[in-house]
């Protein structure tokens, strides 16, 4: 502890910040895309058409029972093959880009379970009232059910996003330079593991701790519904 060298952190801050920026970009992309796909999956799961139910259930169950690191590596390798099959051209997409796709698709499974319980938390009478007003299925969902489901589940969706933010560190498996990856690469070069890994841990802690407190605050604010 005596020779903890802060200058190592300052010298490399630019590279670390770049990594952190990538982590945030993947998180936001996967959050927006994941919630969108997740909501569609939740609606499929709750629909009255068995094939749609099966598809959604299969999707969610498969992604929820596989380790994320495995999915990250598998998609990184399989995605170019699929693209080549579709376009007929070699398409190397790179580790950094494939992670955007992987996280969106993977997180959709988790967001969909949250949206499903959100939709189920809306009383049945609301749906009946929607139909009684002459709304179509789409209108009932869009104007009545989903806004309430979304509001009820907002804290849980945000908590899942904090988990997602931490999980981006697993792109280590394919060598992409996220925040942790940046620190790891600097460590390989400068051999200062204590400074680098501690910095990552502290920054992650400060960000996630602050965000989770804010989510708690939000939760008490919007809990008044009903």
């Amino acid at each position: 502890m005596s020779d903890f060298d802060f200058s190592v952190i300052l010298e490399n801050w630019g590279f670390l910040a770049q990594g952190l920026r990538y982590t945030v970009q993947v998180t936001i992309t996967a959050m927006l895309g994941g919630i969108l796909i997740g909501t569609v999956l939740a609606l499929m799961r709750l629909s009255s058409l068995p094939p749609l139910q099966w598809f959604a259930a299969g999707y969610v169950n498969i992604f929820r029972s596989v380790p994320l690191v495995q999915v990250i590596l598998a998609f990184y390798l399989i995605l170019p093959m699929v693209l080549q099959m579709i376009t007929g051209k070699q398409m190397p997409i790179g580790a950094a880009n494939s992670a955007y796709f992987t996280f969106t698709v993977f997180e959709a499974a988790y967001y969909s379970e949250i949206m499903r319980s959100g939709i189920q938390s809306v009383p049945r009478g609301q749906v009946a009232a929607g139909y009684a007003m002459g709304f179509t299925y789409g209108q009932t969902m869009r104007l009545v059910v989903l806004p309430q489901a979304f509001r009820n589940m907002l804290p849980v969706l945000l908590t899942q996003t904090i988990i997602l933010f931490q999980d981006v560190s697993l792109v280590y498996a394919i060598g992409a330079t996220d925040f942790f990856g940046a620190a790891d690469k600097i460590t390989q070069r400068d051999l200062r593991p204590v400074e680098m890994y501690t910095t990552v841990a502290v920054v992650y802690f400060v960000i996630c701790f602050t965000l989770s407190r804010l989510v708690k605050l939000l939760q008490s604010r919007i809990a008044i519904i009903r």
Binding site: Y197, Y204, F205
Partner: peptide, 23 residues
């Protein structure tokens, strides 16, 4: 709970392997 839930698992493992032995 706050500390161990707000740091990614892979970072925690690296702390145990490469940082704690130095401290």
């Amino acid at each position: 709970v706050d500390v161990f839930r707000n740091i990614p698992l892979i970072v925690q493992l690296f702390m145990w392997f490469f940082v704690v032995p130095e401290l």
